[in-house]
């Protein structure tokens, strides 16, 4: 019996019903397939089919928006993995983090990646804001997308801040004490804001579960919503900005 060559196997696979049901277009080496692959793929169709040469220079965008989004994805994946092992209870939280670091396979790596990505995202989002500002990319017709971007920046800070409490160590506890004191200094509404932030008169189990819920579900959902608007508006308002 003749052994099929790799080309034959590859041909057979790529002509099979299964393969063709998944991939409608062949590998995009020609113009048509390049267009169709981008236009017909749910992930890629965020992009336009064509981009102006001047707008995608790396020294223009520095990939900062994309890197911020990538960090958000990394944070989501590592965050989900951490959630498997972490219980937001004042009696267990700290020990769960310890176990993550010592017992869970790759737990330390996951936690480290989550932590550094969180810091990284604050940095890249801020730099992205600076890039957009200094290239004048907020100007009409992109005004509203700039506003959405500022909201995303605030949400990024809030996400990072809510995650700060979860390890339940001294660093977390006192950083949140300082932060909540800052918020509690609001004129007129100070005590109410403080109560809203802590869900108690001091940092307690109520605070932990509140911040945990905000951190793992509420704020990510809100952020995703604004991300969707942000991306959509980039396309709607004329793509990546460029000189007139």
């Amino acid at each position: 019996m003749r052994v099929p060559t790799s080309t034959q196997v590859s041909e057979f696979v790529r002509n099979s019903r299964l393969w063709r049901s998944i991939f409608r277009y062949s590998y995009p080496t020609d113009r048509r397939n390049r267009i169709m692959t981008v236009a017909k793929n749910v992930f890629l169709h965020l992009h336009p089919n064509f981009v102006p040469r001047g707008a995608i220079r790396v020294t223009y965008t520095w990939c900062l928006g994309g890197l911020s989004f990538m960090l958000f994805l990394i944070l989501t994946v590592t965050g989900v993995l951490l959630m498997f092992y972490y219980v937001p209870s004042v009696t267990r939280a700290y020990q769960d983090i310890k176990d993550l670091e010592t017992v869970v396979t790759f737990g330390m790596l996951m936690r480290n990646m989550h932590r550094w990505s969180a810091h990284g995202m604050v940095i890249t989002v801020f730099l992205h804001m600076c890039r957009v500002f200094y290239t004048g990319s907020y100007k009409p017709p992109r005004e509203f997308n700039w506003v959405v971007g500022v909201i995303l920046f605030v949400l990024t800070l809030l996400l990072s801040f809510t995650g700060y409490l979860l390890p339940w160590d001294q660093l977390a506890f006192w950083a949140i004490t300082v932060g909540a004191t800052l918020g509690g200094a609001a004129p007129l509404l100070g005590p109410q804001v403080n109560l809203l932030l802590l869900a108690d008169y001091e940092i307690s189990q109520n605070t932990l579960i509140r911040w945990y819920t905000l951190h793992v579900i509420a704020l990510p959902l809100v952020l995703s919503l604004f991300l969707a608007v942000h991306f959509w508006r980039v396309r709607q308002d004329g793509g990546i900005s460029q000189p007139l």
Binding site: R31, V38, L44, F50, V51, R53, I56, C63, I74
Partner: peptide, 25 residues
């Protein structure tokens, strides 16, 4: 202005920067 197809002119820089980010991280 010259218009380039998104594949690969935009996707490749995105892909490379993502990979570098993940490696560095």
């Amino acid at each position: 202005q010259a218009q380039l197809t998104t594949w690969p002119h935009l996707l490749m820089p995105e892909f490379i920067s993502s990979v570098l980010l993940i490696i560095g991280l």
